[in-house]
Design a protein around this nucleic acid. Structure first.
Lengths: 224, 224
DNA sequence: TTCTTGTCACCTAGGTGTTAATAT
DNA sequence: ATATTAACACCTAGGTGACAAGAA
């Protein structure tokens, strides 16, 4: 069995409509897809991998009211499917004991919109919705292991990790939640760093408090 | 068979008497021990590892003449041997094909003088000389593989990678060669960055030209 | 108008030798 | 006198969203 790490954060993003940036060079996901794994044979070899499947066959577009607060509309049929690449966890293959003894993190996985990418990144269509999937493949030591491929892998889907691929954020709340929760975006926070641990209530959507103190609150006039 | 990478650089250091810093937290080696490997069975599994053996059973000490240009003296018998740790290359185990298709770099290996280290670093005695060794272990698929341990591994020693473990550099030329050749020490270079590619003659000890232009040349009075 | 691209300042994360203080 | 330690400035390396310019 598999347990999604940082589920509370994923839920918070999912509630707003998660967006993931895709770039030509490749962009990591945030939150990072991380899992804890249970019940493997400690001595057996496994490959761990991810792929991404379209949630629907729609293309989306964005509408803007009065400079902000825009929302998604269906823009028509999906674009032609991208090459269906998979991302093997770089530690693959490894023993079950190795996989289970710590959190497995797919932080090397990158998303791109470059159909000709030759860096092995996952290719996605911008403005389309995707469902990440996690696969565990048992490395069968038998000679004719190909025949047992069906029974030697198991797939796990966490619906809260669905997202829309974008080249630029569409929902300002997503931007603010990313800034509040991704350490690499700390440069865009404008709350007092000392303020953060004090206001942090462990139970209830802690990161949204940072959002409330964010750079461009909806309630105050924008400075443009 | 195994080929040492950056052999020219190793030779240049070795000629001066290579020193490697050891710290409590652990310090990487520079140059990094890197090899190209040939002749493995592409489909077989191998473990790659390194260890460090004393070159002699001596302890060294340093004497200083007129503020600089010091040299090594034997200071007596070696201190009690440190725990004989080994460092497994983090990609171990992997297939021969994987190991052979690119340079294998031991850049995660760190040296420490902390006898109680619990980070898995290599523990060495400061002021002692060591010989790095590189071992290739064939992962024998037979049940009673322990019995064949002797024939299932091969050791490679490159004498030009010998070094003295130190807590601070003793030979100023070593310091300058490290500064000239280690990208992370670029902050201590004082030569014109544009000057470097121009004066670079591909044949003859290129890094020594940087040393000649170094911060504290022997020929000019030290500013203390 | 909507979407994409490239550049940028600002971060995280961590590898350098220097230096001053301390230990032996 | 010699050896070790810890803090530090200055790097490499690379992950952020902002922004302006360009493309569709």
């Amino acid at each position: 069995s598999v347990q999604l790490e940082m589920k509370a954060l994923w839920d918070e993003f999912n509630q707003l409509g998660t967006e993931m940036i895709v770039t030509k060079a490749g962009r990591r996901m945030f939150p990072t897809f991380q899992v804890k794994i249970f019940g493997m044979d400690p001595m057996a070899d496994y490959m761990l991998l991810m792929d991404f499947v379209p949630v629907d066959d729609k293309r989306y577009r964005q509408v803007t009211y009065a400079f902000h607060s825009s929302s998604w509309l269906v823009a028509g049929k999906a674009d032609p499917a991208t090459p269906g690449r998979v991302h093997y966890h770089p530690d693959s293959p490894a023993k079950g004991a190795q996989w289970m003894k710590q959190i497995v993190s797919f932080d090397k996985l990158k998303l791109t919109n470059n159909l000709l990418d030759d860096n092995g990144h996952i290719i996605l269509n911008s403005m389309h919705r995707y469902q990440p999937r996690f696969h565990v493949v048992y490395v069968d030591p038998r000679k004719d292991s190909e025949k047992y491929a069906e029974e030697n892998f198991k797939t796990f889907v966490f619906e809260e990790t669905r997202f829309t691929a974008v080249t630029a954020y569409q929902n300002h709340r997503i931007t603010q939640l990313k800034i509040a929760s991704n350490p690499f975006a700390k440069g865009f926070r404008d709350c007092d760093p000392e303020d953060w641990p004090r206001n942090h209530r462990p139970g209830a959507l802690p990161l949204m408090s940072a959002f409330a103190r964010s750079r461009n609150p909806v309630s105050s006039p924008a400075h443009q």
